[in-house]
Amino acid sequence: MKIPFLFLLLLFLQGCAGTSAEKNNELDPISKNDLMVSQKEYAFTPPSEKWRPLPTEGDITVGFYMTEGKNISNQTSFAYHEEPYGYSRNLGQRMGEFYKRFLWASRVTWETPRTRGINILGREGLEATAIGTDPVQGNKVFSRVIFTHRGERIVAFYFTQWRDIKDPFDSSVEAEFQKFLNSFHFLKPSFYEEL
């Protein structure tokens, strides 16, 4: 029997939501023009030395984090992600899908995100900010997520800051994220653009 199409069959154990480890977390030395290159594809101004690279397994393409003080929950991170949660290629729909799963393992309850249209990397973008809380652990997290298009797909930048639920957020460190955003550019077309 000849079937009219190729068939991709997935045998699965329900609940496994892992992602493939297909990325190379290679950060090149800083070049003469003060740019750092990751995976020969992403160039950006690196943050100051107190920021450390995030492991790129799971949902991060390239990113950095810092921990302030002795409280381990006082962590701030920012990242670029080539495959943000969700699947839609519409910015608003993707934002909704994203927040359904973002930090799901931390059992965060998100408030309704506030959104605004922006221009990022010279193209249309959608910025969402929201605060999530984890009443069990007594933590809260501020998130700022920027969605934009890369070719046919949607990519995202995100900034998160964790604090004890009683402590204020520190927005001053967001300047490092902004510096990352302002300098970020692609050195070559994406896998999907070349497919």
Binding site: F5, L6, F7, L9, L10, L11, F12, L13, Q14
Partner: peptide
Amino acid sequence: NARVAGVS
């Protein structure tokens, strides 16, 4: 021209 299905 591919179709995908999951089996559990």
